[in-house]
Design a protein around this nucleic acid. Structure first.
Lengths: 152, 152
DNA sequence: GGCAGGTGGTTCAAATTTGAATCACGTCTC
DNA sequence: GAGACGTGATTCAAATTTGAACCACCTGCC
């Protein structure tokens, strides 16, 4: 102990590539989404999760976990989306404290309008740049990383 | 055309894993760095780049490119680091508009103190979770992604 | 019933990030 | 050597993010 197990060259290169690819790609995505449909990436992800959920609704805390934000961050963004008419809040019958975020028709429409351009960016800059093996490595390897970090 | 080339299941899983792993890992890193040495991840990266540069200094714009931030974002953070005594500014002799950010001794000391814990987190939650092949896939695949996005 | 402790969301102030000006210079052309 | 134009960095206001209270409510336990 006391001696750090530093990263070797490959490991360092992998880590840096991971870090920079994430940052650069996110920047592109943010730019495209904002220009194309006026949504931030986070807002887009929120709409995606809701549209995939039963009855188009999720509890605030589940949603926060799914999109990896803080509770207060989600409260803010849901308020923004509500102002824009893309989402509405519904209080939970069983537990008065609980709040559901519900996708509205306008929200679904906005999502459907935004999705093609978004997927195109992800494909062009990430998926299509990788080999099939590399895609599988991301899915398996990073999938395990997510599982261990409690994000599954 | 008009028909979107959607992601298949594996591609979607890979993309989601990439996204969530980045977010979850960054959260851990941020937490560890803040607790352990009072630095944000961005500030840590700034110190790393400076310490690796000749004469421990880099132009503001180079630094902004290296850590993937906006110019104004970097201006803000360098000001913070300067207040903390970890970095200082030096105007460029050849071009009066240019500014170098220079690592101070205190900055280097802080970096050296922070590094072991940081590497440990990256290793524990990312590198050691992956197989050698998967590490290579990140390095090669995401390295290419970065190159094409103009981050190399 | 009534209270201790935990949970789900919100609120609030402070820190950070963003992007569009802006400022002060280099550079290039005629 | 005077503009026209591009660059490097900062400034500014607005938007977002963060984390620590906080509030209201559930749940167990006595």
């Amino acid at each position: 102990m006391g001696d750090t197990n530093w990263l070797n060259d490959d490991e360092m290169a992998a880590w840096q590539a991971f870090l920079m690819a994430g940052a650069l790609l996110d920047r592109r995505i943010e730019e495209q989404l904002k220009a194309d449909s006026g949504l931030s990436h986070l807002q887009y992800e929120v709409l995606v999760r809701l549209s995939a959920a039963p009855d188009d609704e999720l509890r605030m805390s589940e949603l926060a976990g799914a999109v990896i934000t803080t509770k207060s961050g989600l409260t803010y963004q849901i308020t923004q989306l509500e102002k824009a008419g893309l989402v509405r809040r519904r209080t939970c019958a069983a537990d008065v404290r609980g709040v559901y975020a519900v996708l509205t028709d306008a929200g679904r429409a906005r999502l459907e309008r935004a999705a093609p351009g978004h997927v195109e960016v992800v494909r062009a800059h990430l998926i299509d740049v990788l080999s099939e093996d590399q895609v599988r490595a991301l899915k398996d390897g990073l999938g395990e990383v997510v599982r261990r970090l409690g994000g599954g």
